[in-house]
C-alpha cells in the first residue's frame, strides 16, 4: 500500500497474544494451533506456548561460557618462534602487538571481536534473562538487543580462525613457526557456549509481563 513496499500485518483486535487467546503459536513458522496440539502441523516443530526451561538453559550455558573465557585470556593463544626465539601471546597481547606494528584497524577488529563482543554479550544475555526472571516489562528495544546479540555472537570466532590460518601457513622450520596455544580451545568453547545460551532464550518471554497490564 505505501510507497516503500511495506504493508503492516493487520492486528487481530489490538495486540493480543496467542497465549492470551488460549492458543499456541509455533515459534518456527508462526502457525496458530489449539492448546492440545503437540506438534505443529505445518513444520513439525514441537509446540510450546513458552519454553519454560528456557531461562535455566540460558543461565547454565552463560556461566559455562564465562568460566571458559577466563583461561582463554590467561593462557597463550599463539606460540611464535622466529630464529629460535619463542614467544607466547595471549588475546590481548596479540592486539597490542598489532598496535605496535601500526595496524590500528586490524587491532581494532580483533579487539572488538575477541574482547568487546564476548563481554558485552555476557552482560546483555544476563540483563535480558534477569529482566524476564524478575518480571519486568519488556519493550521492542529489548527484542532488538536480543537480535543484535544473536547476530553478532558468531563473529567472535574470528580469532580462532586467525590462529588456525596462521598455524597452517607459518611452518617454515627455523625461520618462523606459529603454533596454536591452548587458549584457542577455551576461547572457541566460550563462543560456542554463549551462542547456545543466546539460542536457548525464548524471545516471547520478553513481552509476557505486559499482558496483564492495560496497554
Amino acid at each position: 500500500m505505501s510507497g516503500d513496499g511495506m504493508a503492516n500485518a493487520e492486528p487481530a483486535q489490538g495486540v493480543i497474544t496467542a497465549r492470551a487467546a488460549g492458543l499456541i503459536g509455533c515459534a518456527e513458522c508462526g502457525r496458530v494451533h489449539r492448546r492440545d496440539v503437540p506438534l505443529c502441523t505445518v513444520c513439525g516443530a514441537p509446540l510450546q506456548s513458552r519454553d519454560t526451561a528456557s531461562l535455566q538453559k540460558v543461565w547454565a550455558w552463560l556461566f559455562a561460557g564465562m568460566v571458559v573465557y577466563i583461561p582463554a585470556n590467561v593462557y597463550p593463544m599463539l606460540r611464535t618462534s622466529t630464529f629460535g626465539n619463542t614467544s607466547d601471546s595471549t588475546i590481548v597481547g596479540g592486539v597490542l602487538e598489532l598496535v605496535d606494528h601500526g595496524s590500528y584497524g586490524v587491532a581494532f577488529i580483533v579487539f572488538f571481536a575477541s574482547v568487546v563482543i564476548p563481554i558485552s554479550k555476557f552482560i546483555a544475555i544476563a540483563y535480558l534473562a534477569y529482566r524476564v526472571q524478575t518480571g519486568k516489562r519488556g519493550h521492542a528495544r529489548h527484542l532488538h538487543l536480543y537480535e543484535v546479540v544473536e547476530f553478532i555472537g558468531r563473529w567472535s570466532m574470528i580469532d580462532v580462525f586467525v590462529v588456525a590460518i596462521l598455524s597452517a601457513l607459518v611452518q617454515l622450520d627455523f625461520v618462523a613457526t606459529i603454533n596454536p596455544g591452548i587458549a584457542a580451545v577455551s576461547f572457541a568453547l566460550s563462543v560456542a557456549f554463549t551462542m547456545v545460551s543466546a539460542n536457548s532464550f525464548d524471545p516471547r518471554l520478553i513481552w509476557d509481563t505486559r499482558e496483564g497490564t492495560p496497554a
Partner: peptide
C-alpha cells in the same frame, strides 16, 4: 486458525494479510 499468524518473536496474533510480491508484512508489536 489457518487465517491467523502468531509472531514467532513476540507471540502477537495477526490475521494473515495479503502481501504483494516484493512487499513485506511486519509484526505490529515488535
Amino acid at each position: 486458525l489457518a487465517n491467523m499468524i502468531a509472531c514467532p518473536k513476540c507471540d502477537a496474533l495477526h490475521r494473515i494479510p495479503h502481501v504483494e510480491k516484493g512487499a513485506r508484512a511486519r509484526c505490529v508489536r515488535c
